[in-house]
Amino acid sequence: MLKILKYSFFDLMRSRWSYVYFAFYLLLGIILLFLNNDLSKAVITLMNVIIVLVPLIGTIFGVMYYYNSKEFTELLLAQPLKRASIFIGQYLGVALSLSMSLIFGLGIPFIFYGLLQSTAIWDFSLLLTSGTFLTFIFTALAFNIALSQDNKIKGFGYAILLWLFFAIIYDGFFLMTLILFEDYPLDKLSLVGTMLNPIDLSRTLILLKLDISALLGYTGAIFKKFFGTNFGLIISSLMMTIWVVFPVIRIIIKSRKKDF
């Protein structure tokens, strides 16, 4: 598996798109930090960009990589390698290279800004941690879609729909449920609702840490009341881990039964 991971990773590290992605974050970091004198505002803006953009890039890159390397995967399948190690290796290669672009793209301007001496370093690391989690989650979901759908166009369609669902549609439904059933106690429902969407979950996680009650919103406030800041952080990190583990398990099961 490590060999496949290594080759997928270097293959992607050399592709133009990794650099475009890296440059985008670099530029974003520089603009937000050096043309803006409020650090916490910069972190919030970054958060808003990350929780929408990271899942989108993760899904698109994931399906694109899978479909583009299909023939090559077939070559690998004819080699004495276990199927699971081929696909998990490729998945980790994609997820790691995307995470690297994110971490270095934002990390470099922050280091120049003098972040290492500032107290915002924990907020910032949390931001990068949730960004990395989101990359791993959505790349895994993308690989699931691509493994289940041989038709490239349909695969892309489903990937975009998945992103749209978690980033936008889900919140709409969630809000409508809250309005429709406002006469009932909704604490538990909204807690579960947040847990089931990794994007909402990371937003809540970051806002909890930043301790900006005005931005927490209804679910965030409940989250805080229910779990407290620290326990809330643990619970949501645990949920994020589950969100990575299940899709990865499904990649392994699905790849074992698939015909190529």
Binding site: Y7, D11, R14, S15, S69, K70, E71, F72, E74, L75, A78, Q79, P80, L81, K82, R83
Partner: peptide
Amino acid sequence: DSVYRHQIDYLPQIANFPNNL
């Protein structure tokens, strides 16, 4: 099993390799 594939050399129909390599 995957180990038996050490005994096989396979030439696939369409050769398409990673473009950056």
